[in-house]
Design a protein around this nucleic acid. Structure first.
Lengths: 199, 199
DNA sequence: CTGCAACGTTGCAGTCACTGCAACTTCCCG
DNA sequence: CGGGAAGTTGCAGTGACTGCAACGTTGCAG
């Protein structure tokens, strides 16, 4: 895409190599059994370099790349202005996670890893929170609301991402085929004002 | 209350002393400037003992005591069975946080600390998550829904606690007088199905 | 009252995540 | 081609957290 020189490209490659090594090793041996030195060695890089790209070992395992995050943000920005925020965010994530088998696998693999290793739950929330704070500014733009003065932007983003996370956790058990349906079901609960479902 | 012997009482006192020291020191010097040894010394206890009561330094600073958590859980359980979960949780937290000046101060002090030190944001989410998982089982009981099969329980708890957290953050700026109103406003957004507010 | 078992506290040694700093190398740009 | 910017690396250090083996108290049963 936008190739900004050899330097940038190598940096991205390094980051990607670390992230891939971290996730693979965590899946293989469990996150707590993997050291930063292991990750660095598997990525062919110095341990110090891992922390030049990630603030935390867990972030190296679960973190979402800035590119992927920027794509999601732009996609939300590009939704029709008349569309309410919940619907806009829901559409973007439903689309992004079911666009291809690779995309679905990317998200489901992380969800399965977190489900298998509850120690990662906090790291998952941290990762979600990072995306959340960025999305809040987008929703603030779209709605013209000041996030410090009105709870709406942070609240709608927080709930929408929680819905996606919970749907992913369910699909991690039930299989990829259920992913789209799981996300839509969860978002429907939000749109209904949390009316208790009548089974 | 339920005095289960001298041993239990001393254990609770130890835990309380550590928590108080941790919070006080964090407020005074900033969380990152406080070591576990500092906390232990201020609490008159061995550093090792801190980790017998708390899994993490941040948990010692922000953690909610099991008693307080149990009270909240029981309060939700005791709400009328016909009341929908969102309303039940909302009522309990609104009540608990505005019941007394002490209660409001307890929650607002933590919110202010987190606002002043973003490093604590993740720890706050971790603390919330712990309460969340316990509340999910309560909502599961109330609704008769299996949390693994249906997203509703986890979703409604997640959204409700997010509303409370966001309202606390706003009240941390605006002052304790706004607390009740802030919580009610945030919960109203949820009940309205995230209809975009028309200013 | 007395021993015995359960439990909380402590010290110790060790591992490992994470940081600041100072080279060193490589790429970019004038 | 020269100089500055940026990424990588090694090193030394701090501090969170853990397992383990005493140790002293408390609770309980005989």
């Amino acid at each position: 895409m936008t190739d900004l020189g050899l330097r940038e490209r190598k940096k991205h490659e390094t980051r990607a190599a670390i992230a891939r090594a971290a996730l693979d090793l965590a899946v293989a041996h469990g996150p707590s059994a993997v050291t930063v030195d292991d990750i660095a060695a598997a990525a062919g890089v110095s341990p110090r370099t891992v922390f030049n790209h990630f603030g935390t070992k867990d972030e190296a395992i679960l973190g979402i790349s800035p590119e992927r995050r920027a794509e999601l943000l732009d996609a939300v920005r590009d939704r029709p202005a008349a569309e309410p925020p919940l619907r806009a965010i829901g559409a973007v994530f439903t689309e992004a996670m079911t666009a291809s088998d690779d995309a679905a696998a990317f998200w489901l693999r992380r969800a399965q890893l977190v489900a298998a290793h509850p120690d990662l739950r906090v790291a998952q929330l941290a990762s979600q929170d990072q995306l959340q704070q960025e999305l809040v500014t987008v929703v603030a733009e779209r709605t013209g609301l000041d996030p410090d003065a009105h709870p709406y932007p942070e609240l709608v983003v927080s709930a929408a991402l929680a819905a996606v996370r919970i749907a992913l956790a369910r699909a991690a058990h039930a299989g990829p085929a259920r992913l789209r349906r799981a996300i839509e079901d969860a978002l429907a609960v939000l749109a209904d004002g949390f009316a208790p479902p009548t089974t």
